[in-house]
Design a protein around this nucleic acid. Structure first.
Lengths: 346, 346
DNA sequence: CTGAAAGCGCTTACAG
DNA sequence: CTGAAAGCGCTTACAG
């Protein structure tokens, strides 16, 4: 079937070990021999067997991508394809392949990660989420396996894990302050799944901003749903059932916002006239909502790219130690926010 | 580091070959021994080394996913995450992992595919596209490597390749006829990249419907752009520059349609009042355009799932031969189409 | 029903 | 500068 190193060796009149060294471009082989071997390789159409190579030198040249819920669920939100775009770019540049987790439940995912680690399927992992009571991260730390987290560690010491994150607390505080400045005081918070650390950070930023403005937090203004359009729709129903419904909404995710806008429309409420909305993420299609949504660009692509870069650092130099990178966020003002009617301030 | 078969063997007081047979659940091992070995495995936390296993029995238990443009580009369109959802689901059920292509150019991708095939990185491939002058498919055929195409072969004999596809010709004919019935005669066609076979099929279906209705095809009503929102926007500019612009549009892809709607809005044209639109794909967010778009549901998830199922057939039984599956399409009527003003028919 | 041995295709000390 | 040999962790005929 496939051409092996032996056949190349025979053709080039050298030992297999020499061929191996030519592949590795060892400086101990003469240019003349190298050329001869390379010629034989192209003539025969040689391609190295990755399994053999991996087995011999314990390096697979592939990166594992671990998603919170399997592609099946996660890929319903453009956040994940977008991070993977960034990961893919850097991985390709560095000559790495990508291996995707496919498990659904937390147990299945943990089992997959064990397979990746013990089975020698990948050299390192990019963890695309940070969740409360997570089992995966402690496992990776315990195994001293190279990985980078997108998000921030929780219930685990920061000094133990390399991560790339946004300052989600600050971002949430920012958008809340923005709405406050527009005169809103009844601000609803539509968080993502509370199992995820990003949701906790958003929520804390929101509360902090309210506290700073001397507004007491109304618990019935806070709801949590999965980051899907359905989540956004359900959230609106909940919030609008309040006796005094909010006049502005902070929404954890742009896809939810699509659902939110649609549901408000169904309720005959105009955005931004009757409801202001600020969202998070700025995925590719966010500008295509109508009205175009105001959202926080968290530079998803960069999160993926940078995380992979840090992973490469670790793989190239295992002694490099922990690194932390915060990707800046940026409020993108479009057309879902306006001054509150009853507002007395400017 | 990781526990090997040897250590398990020692602990269970058997030979490594016996452990191997227990893993494979060979019927030639006594239940008693199996139990003893399994106990040892869990006690030691044994996980098989995939590289060693793959090397020894030439099976990786992973599927390669080959995209037209690397994740970097492809993932900008929700079509791809959505197919991968389907692939992921079936792959997980069958105990397979997923390996993703990362190359950008056609040459890079071909090189990656060679790596997958010769390097023994995957057992089979799901090809997510069919393009004119494609090099990848002929290579896979020549190598007799198991793969399934999503799309249909072009410049290659159908009897040589297992594929899953929609009847894109028929679907395009259908939507054209639908617009004709609504009284439209000036129907613009916004195709995807003409390198892709699906675009050709769409175009032919469109022309056939026009011919059947005795309407001559206006070449300036046909434009082709990449399947991105920008593509949709550019297409609108082109088409609206016609002396007699179309009153209805067939758009190759929902994401393009988002761009189309936005651009028309900028031109102060109302959909569907001033322009009817039918689109293809029905991705997750399609119903969230405003107005919600009328589109052909091609059941993307099913394409991925079914393709993977067919690939499994091949892997389980290499003699099974070629299979062809057509996934049905369905026109989802929402709110981007209406009767043409000047129409005399009903 | 179980074991000893060869082999999968590489890499890498060890010699020279 | 190059080669012979051992080894990576499995699987699988071959014996018994």
């Amino acid at each position: 079937m496939a051409v092996t190193i032996k056949e190349v060796a025979k053709r080039a009149n050298v030992a297999p070990s020499t061929v191996s060294r030519v592949i590795a471009n060892s400086s101990r082989i003469s240019e003349k021999t190298k050329e001869r071997v390379r010629e034989a390789m192209t003539e025969l159409g040689y391609h190295p067997n990755y399994n053999a190579r991996s087995l011999a030198n314990k390096s697979t040249k592939t990166i594992g991508i671990v998603m919170p819920n399997s592609a099946k669920v996660s890929f319903q939100n453009p956040f994940f394809p977008e991070v993977i775009r960034g990961i893919s770019m850097k991985a390709y540049q560095s000559g790495y392949g990508l291996y995707l987790s496919t498990g659904h439940t937390e147990e299945e995912i943990l089992e997959e990660v064990k397979q990746m680690v013990f089975g020698g399927r990948v050299d390192g992992i990019v963890l695309l989420y940070s969740r409360v009571n997570d089992q995966v991260m402690p496992f990776l730390i315990e195994q001293k396996f190279p990985f980078v987290l997108i998000g921030r560690p929780y219930q685990v010491d920061e000094s133990l894990v390399t991560y790339v994150n946004n300052d989600n607390f600050k971002a949430a505080k920012l958008v809340t302050e923005y709405l406050l400045l527009l005169g809103h005081e009844k601000i609803g918070f539509i968080g993502g799944n509370l199992d995820f650390v990003v949701t906790i950070d958003h929520m804390n930023g929101y509360e902090q901003a309210l506290k700073n403005a001397n507004i007491t937090v109304n618990e019935s203004y806070k709801v949590y749903h999965d980051e899907l359009k359905e989540g956004g729709q359900d959230a609106v129903i909940e919030l609008m059932s309040n006796e005094h419904p909010p006049t502005a909404l902070i929404v954890a995710d742009d896809i939810m916002t699509f659902g939110v806008i649609r549901m408000l429309e169904d309720m005959n409420m105009k955005v931004p006239h009757d409801m202001s909305i600020v969202s998070f993420n700025n995925v590719m299609i966010s500008e295509l909502s109508s009205p175009p949504m105001t959202t926080v660009d968290i530079h998803i692509y960069d999160l993926g790219f940078k995380a992979t870069e840090l992973l490469m650092h670790q793989l190239e130099d295992p002694t490099i130690g922990v690194e932390h990178v915060i990707i800046p966020h940026k409020l993108v003002k479009r057309q879902t926010c306006k001054l509150d009617h009853g507002a007395s301030r400017g």
